[in-house]
Design a protein around this nucleic acid. Structure first.
Lengths: 228, 228
DNA sequence: TTCCTTGTCAAGTAATCACTTGAAGTCTTG
DNA sequence: CAAGACTTCAAGTGATTACTTGACAAGGAA
């Protein structure tokens, strides 16, 4: 064996990245940052932690090179360092879903029963977007829609949904999507819409997966949603 | 926010996998297991740790579902739980190489200067294997060769290399490969061969990458190597 | 049975980690 | 300049982690 100490140091280097992904709070941060850049205190409220604690977790992600910062006035915005980091997180989530025994139960505890909700695949949504017989709504917060959304989707944040139902036709088939397979926004939206008598289903995963698959996305433009 | 506690628990579940990859010693274990199953004390010597400590690390990998065990008499053999785990490890290594600042230096400290060594890509090796103008040698321990190797390669463990040079022709172009891009066996083999006047280069990565790329592999058969 | 090999468990220690609280930077605005 | 908003730093606490040592369990061979 060449130089055990150097080998250990090298693998400790690789493990830095594993360590960064080895805390639930940091995992939540990455999951949110996948939707676009965020300031520290937005992130803090999102993960339900103090600003100081969130800042320290972010420092740790920074040290592992997984995120980057951008200063804008008094705010500091964090972003994922590259698309690769998003891929790594997605793969880690898949591996966890396949191999961690209790994950099914944990997911069910958080997401509730999904069996009653219809969901459609990316490929099918793509097809129906082309034929135009479906209204796609992005139920994430407006800022995330602005940072990037499925081309043709309208922004209709979950928080505003109840107030803006008037504009929707009950004949139109509605497809809601949000941050990904472990995000509850689209589920909540579909449940609410169905309760009110709309035809609604959810995209089986979220925007990041759509973008990663190379399907058409748009960013920037805020296309006020709600009206059909 | 639906149920913060349930959400935290779910992400802690994902983070279990991150934690499992968050120690250099466990990373080394995964890297070795990528070459095939191993008993606990083989693994312990490989990573230079006590058997007790190695066992505990393996328990942790087991809890995260990344490895599986098989009992054989008084020995217990560990294997990666699925090919996905190998993919995850490879992607994590890539992300670390791209984003962890000091990794270059750590890799150089362990691997030494590689600039002097010629290396060839998988695609090129594939082509030259077909035309047959090259001798491919697998310099990993014989057990790893037996567990799976590049089709057409001969087993010539680094430990035996010096003793078995007689059988090699100085006209033949030799390509050595080992466990992967961060493995020193092939480097050492190429250095030794060149010092003795052979034409030698290394495959730029190792057997797991070859297999993952879907290129032809063989397992089981022990094709005694050395003679051309 | 007893002995031997292999692996796990349990207890102990020093180091690291996640969070809290309160203070100190840093940039913008008045 | 001072005041205010946002972020980071520093110190402290309880929990977890990586390793060691020594004891125990499970299977094989005499």
């Amino acid at each position: 064996m060449a130089d055990q100490a150097a080998k250990d140091a090298l693998f400790d280097g690789f493990a830095l990245v594993g360590k960064a992904l080895g805390s639930g709070r940091r995992a939540e941060l990455i999951d949110v940052l996948l939707q676009g850049e965020r300031s520290v205190d937005e992130l803090a409220t999102e993960i339900g932690q103090s600003v100081a604690n969130t800042s320290q977790h972010l420092q740790q992600l920074l040290r592992a090179g997984l995120v980057r910062t951008r200063r804008d006035g008094t705010r500091i915005h964090y972003t994922l360092a590259s698309a690769r980091v998003g891929e790594l997180w997605a793969l880690l989530r898949t591996v966890a879903a396949e191999h961690v025994g209790e994950l099914d139960r944990l997911a069910q505890d958080y997401l509730g029963d999904r069996d009653a909700l219809e969901s459609i695949s990316r490929a099918e949504l793509r097809k129906r977007l082309r034929t135009g017989d479906v209204l796609v709504v992005d139920v994430r917060p407006a800022a995330e829609y602005a940072a990037g959304h499925i081309t043709g989707a309208q922004s209709l944040p979950l928080a505003d949904l109840a107030r803006r139902l008037r504009g929707l036709s009950k004949e139109t088939e509605v497809v809601a999507y949000c941050r990904g397979p472990y995000c509850v926004y689209a589920d909540d939206a579909v449940r609410l819409l169905r309760r009110r008598g709309f035809h609604a289903s959810r995209l089986e995963d979220g925007f990041p997966e759509w973008a990663r698959a190379g399907l058409p996305t748009t960013s920037g433009a805020l296309r006020a949603g709600g009206r059909t």
